[in-house]
Amino acid sequence: MTEYKLVVVGAGGVGKSALTIQLIQNHFVDEYDPTIEDSYRKQVVIDGETCLLDILDTAGQEEYSAMRDQYMRTGEGFLCVFAINNTKSFEDIHHYREQIKRVKDSEDVPMVLVGNKCDLPSRTVDTKQAQDLARSYGIPFIETSAKTRQGVDDAFYTLVREIRKHKEKMSKDGKKKKKKSKTKCVIM
C-alpha cells in the first residue's frame, strides 16, 4: 500500500485542523484551538488504489514558523489553505509557496490551493482571484467548507493525484537520464 505524506499549511484560523478532522473523523470542530502540530493517518481508496494518507496539520501562528522547514522537508505534497473571508490569509499563500519551493529546492512541488469556509456569506476573496492565482502557479484550486464537508475529500484526493503525477514524471525523467548515460565512448 502506497503511503502519501501530505502537509496542510496556511495562516492561523483558516480551518486547516477543521478540514483535516472532517476528512479523518467526519465531524466539524467549530471551536478554535490553535494547533502546534498534529499528525493523522487514514486509509482510503483513490482511483481504485488503496493508500495510506499521513497528514500533518501544522501551526499557522507566526511564533511556530521555525518548525516549518522541518515538516516541509518531509512532506510530499501540500494543501495551501486560505479562508475566503480573510484576504490576508490569501496573500500569505505566496509566502508559504515560496518557502516550500526553497526548502524542497524545487520549482515543481505537488500543491493544491484550497479556499476554505465557502459556506460563509462574508467572502472577501473572489473565486476568480483564487483561480487566477492557482493557474499562475500551475496547481489545482478547490473551494471547501469544513463545516458542510463540501470539497473536503476532493481537496485531499486531488493532492494525492498531483503527487502521483509528480512521481510518474520524475521516474520518466530518471529513465531518460539513465538511457543517456548508457551511451559509451570508444577510443581507438
Results as ranks from 00 to 15, higher is better:
E49N: 05
Y40M: 12
K42D: 07
F28Q: 03
H27R: 09
G12C: 06
I21R: 15
G12R: 05
L6F: 10
K42S: 09
K16C: 08
K16D: 00
D33Y: 07
S17I: 02
L6T: 01
V45R: 08
L53G: 04
L19K: 04
P34N: 10
T2M: 03
Y32W: 09
V29S: 12
Y40T: 15
L23D: 15
F28P: 07
V9C: 09
T58K: 04
T20E: 13
E49C: 03
L23C: 13
E31R: 07
A18R: 06
E31T: 05
V14A: 09
A11L: 14
L56F: 09
K42G: 10
E31S: 10
V9M: 07
E62G: 11
L23F: 10
T50E: 07
D47L: 01
A11Q: 07
G15C: 00
Y40N: 15
A18V: 03
N26V: 02
N26D: 12
S39T: 08
Y40P: 10
R41Q: 14
I46G: 04
E63F: 01
T35C: 06
P34V: 09
L53N: 02
K42N: 08
T50S: 07
E62P: 11
F28C: 12
T35L: 02
D47N: 11
D33S: 10
D33V: 09
Q22I: 00
Q25M: 02
E3G: 15
I21Y: 15
D30Q: 14
I46P: 03
H27L: 14
G12Q: 03
I36R: 07
G60I: 01
E3I: 05
Q61H: 10
K5N: 12
V14P: 04
Q22N: 14
C51V: 12
L6S: 00
Q43L: 04
Y40K: 13
G60T: 08
L56A: 14
D33A: 09
T20Q: 09
S17G: 10
D38V: 05
T58N: 10
G10P: 00
E31G: 12
I21W: 15
L53S: 04
L6C: 02
Y4G: 07
D30H: 03
T2F: 05
V14Q: 06
K5H: 08
Q22H: 08
D38W: 03
V45E: 08
K42F: 07
E3N: 02
T2C: 12
Y4E: 04
V14E: 03
V14I: 12
V7H: 06
S17R: 08
T35G: 13
E31W: 04
A59Y: 08
A18W: 04
I36S: 14
D57S: 10
V44H: 10
F28W: 06
C51L: 04
V14F: 02
R41E: 07
V14C: 12
K5L: 01
G48K: 08
L19T: 14
Y64F: 12
F28A: 09
V8P: 00
K42A: 08
Y40I: 08
G13L: 08
G15T: 00
T2P: 07
K5M: 00
L6V: 07
V44F: 08
I21F: 13
A18G: 12
V29E: 13
L53Y: 02
A18K: 10
T20P: 15
G15V: 00
V45W: 04
G13C: 10
I46D: 11
V44K: 08
Y4M: 03
Y32Q: 10
T50L: 03
L23W: 12
D57A: 05
K16W: 01
Q61Y: 03
E63W: 01
L52V: 14
E3L: 04
Y40A: 13
I55D: 13
Q25D: 03
G15N: 00
G12P: 11
K42L: 08
T58Y: 06
R41K: 10
Y4S: 12
D47F: 01
L56T: 14
K5F: 01
Y32E: 13
V8I: 11
Y40S: 13
G48M: 01
Y64Q: 15
I46E: 03
D54M: 01
V44G: 12
N26S: 08
L19N: 11
N26L: 02
Q43A: 06
A11Y: 02
V29I: 13
V29D: 10
F28M: 11
A11G: 03
V7R: 14
V7M: 06
G13D: 12
L52E: 15
S17P: 00
D33Q: 09
V44M: 06
Q25W: 02
D33N: 09
I21D: 15
D30F: 08
K42M: 06
Y64H: 14
G12N: 02
I21L: 15
V14N: 04
N26T: 04
E49M: 02
S17F: 02
L56Y: 14
K42Q: 08
V45Y: 10
D54F: 01
I24K: 14
H27N: 12
G13F: 08
C51K: 04
Y32K: 10
P34I: 04
D57M: 14
G13R: 05
I24P: 15
L53Q: 04
V7L: 02
D30R: 11
Y64V: 12
L56K: 14
Q22F: 03
H27F: 07
G15F: 00
T2A: 11
T58V: 12
G10K: 00
G12A: 09
E37V: 11
T58A: 10
Q22L: 01
T35K: 13
V29L: 11
G12F: 02
E37L: 04
D47S: 04
Q61D: 13
G12T: 04
Y32A: 13
K16P: 00
V45K: 11
A59L: 03
L19I: 07
E63R: 05
L52Y: 13
L52S: 15
D38K: 05
G10L: 00
T35Q: 05
A11S: 05
C51T: 06
C51H: 05
G15L: 00
D38L: 06
L52G: 14
S39D: 11
K16Y: 00
R41C: 08
V45F: 14
E63C: 03
S39N: 11
R41T: 10
I24G: 15
D38A: 08
I55F: 12
T58W: 04
V45P: 06
I21N: 15
I46F: 04
P34R: 06
C51E: 08
V7K: 02
G60C: 06
E62Y: 06
H27Q: 12
I55R: 04
D30V: 06
V7Y: 03
T50P: 11
K42R: 06
K5P: 05
E31D: 11
Y32H: 14
D57V: 15
I36T: 13
E63P: 11
L53R: 01
I36G: 13
V7E: 03
E37S: 07
Q43W: 02
I36D: 07
V7I: 03
